[in-house]
Design a protein around this nucleic acid. Structure first.
Length: 398
RNA sequence: GGGCGGUUCGUAUAGCGGCAAUUACUCGUGGCUGUAGACCACGCGGCCUUUGGCCUUCGGGGGUUCGAGUCCCUCACCGCCCA
């Protein structure tokens, strides 16, 4: 399918997106440039509906590997998702039902296909082999792994220290994930640095059972270089999903901290490193970070929606937020004329309760045609544009 | 099997029997800005005719009390220690 890649192509790939390679960079380069197609996989647990920017680094590496002529498997952890990662006491019992997992897998693939060409990779599910293992087989596998090895893992250490439960099922999670590598007889695995432990488990098992060397490629996590916190944080609500509309994506990217500009461009896009360095230089020279962030956000939208929507998103954003104007696409509400503003907000689920709607009004967060609403009994009329908070707009139509 | 401790708002925490109930983070609104972030202010169970009133909450169920997250009993779940 393609030429034998040069070492420099491989090194470029590794330099940008990749953190550490096991057993070593040299070995990986040697194997990857040998001309023999290798099989790599990325495991995804379909526990939620969205893929966010933090996941895309892995996909970009896969894209490159495909281009270099290697085979890629996208592994849906439909079986492992049912063990999950319980953090709190209540979630221990929360098992995702099969239907939810299937639904998540579907939306995942839709999103993956925004980066990888649809037929350029293979999808597999780990229930294929995990669901049918017998206890005898599990026993045999478990022989290769020690308790000491497993217990050193951060998550377990933390929970031990906090006196929280660790079920045997969870303890087996690394074993399950490790077995995936054996079952598919892969040559390598890709994952974030937080997955190092599980991926190494697979490397050990492949070595012990299949007698071959599995390459483990850990990719850089999208972290704020200043705070060292994840930039995409699902639990904190603010993350850029690949399912976001162009305007949403742009807006969310703009709402990120300035320090996210360079990491996102570097790890989540294919913008040339020269350009990234150029932006870094301009940032250092005191140029308004807002301008640079706009460029970053535009690159993102361009990547997923193309150049014109990207341009439109910039314009829309400037109009709405920089100049306080109205967006292009306003949600229109029919049959609402004559209702009080509180009813309108509550009935259309723009607030969770009437009290919340009133609170918004009380605090000056609701405007009708640019006029701050002070009376919550005020009725709305056809043609009026209502602004709720900073970024939600609705228009009353007949 | 035994002993001890725990279960309170999304998370983490306070709460000598009189509180819709502390604090922190998250979150929401406003201010300031460069859209933000940081910072400051306010808000964060529900409903209302809102200086106030009413309703429903602190794992489940019972009890004591004028009054119970708060005391007692019991059940469930969780943790630690001993066997």
């Amino acid at each position: 399918m393609s030429e034998i890649p040069t070492k420099s192509q491989i090194e470029e790939l590794f330099g940008r997106y990749v953190d550490t390679i096991f057993p070593s960079l040299e070995k990986a380069v040697e194997l990857l440039s040998s001309g023999k197609p290798l099989t790599f996989y990325l495991g995804i647990d379909p526990t939620g509906p969205d893929i966010h920017l933090g996941h895309t680094t892995n996909l970009l590496v896969l894209k490159k590997l495909i281009k270099l002529g290697h085979k890629v498997i996208l592994l849906m952890g439909d079986f492992t998702a049912q063990t999950g990662d319980p953090t709190g006491k209540d979630s221990t019992r929360k098992v995702l039902d099969n239907e939810q997992v299937l639904k998540n897998m579907e939306t995942y693939l839709d999103q993956v296909n925004k980066i990888l060409e649809k037929d350029s990779y293979v999808v597999r599910h780990n229930s294929e082999w995990l669901a049918g293992l017998t206890f005898a087989e599990i026993r045999k596998l478990a022989r290769h792994i020690t308790v000491q090895q497993t217990i050193t893992r951060d998550m377990f250490q933390k929970r031990l220290a906090e006196g929280k439960a660790i079920t045997l099922e969870e303890f087996l999670y690394p074993l399950m994930q490790g077995y995936d590598s054996v079952a598919m007889a892969v040559d390598g695995e890709i994952g974030g640095t937080d997955q190092t432990f599980n991926m190494m488990m697979g490397r050990d098992l492949v070595g012990a059972i299949l007698g071959k060397e599995k390459i483990v490629i850990t990719t850089r996590l999208l972290e704020d270089p200043e705070t060292k916190k994840k930039i995409m944080n699902k639990s904190e609500g603010s993350y850029v999903s690949l399912n976001d509309s162009a305007n949403e994506m742009f807006g969310k990217a703009m709402a990120l901290s300035d320090s996210a500009i360079l990491p996102i461009l570097t790890y989540c896009t294919e913008v040339s490193l020269e350009k990234v360095n150029d932006l870094a230089e301009r940032l250092k020279n005191g140029e308004n970070p807002k301008v640079l962030k706009e460029e970053m956000a535009k690159e993102l939208v361009k990547m997923y929606y193309g150049p014109e929507p990207a341009e439109a998103a910039v314009e829309n954003f400037t109009k709405v937020f920089s100049k306080g104007g109205l967006p292009d696409d306003i949600l229109e509400l029919a049959n609402c004329a004559g209702q009080s503003i509180v009813d309108l907000i509550f009935n259309n689920k723009l607030a969770l309760s009437r009290s919340e709607a009133k609170r918004l009004i009380e605090q000056g967060g609701v405007k009708i045609d640019e006029q701050t609403v002070s009376d919550w009994d005020q009725t709305v009329k056809v043609g009026e544009v209502i602004k709720i908070g900073a970024r939600r707009f609705v228009k009353v139509v007949s």
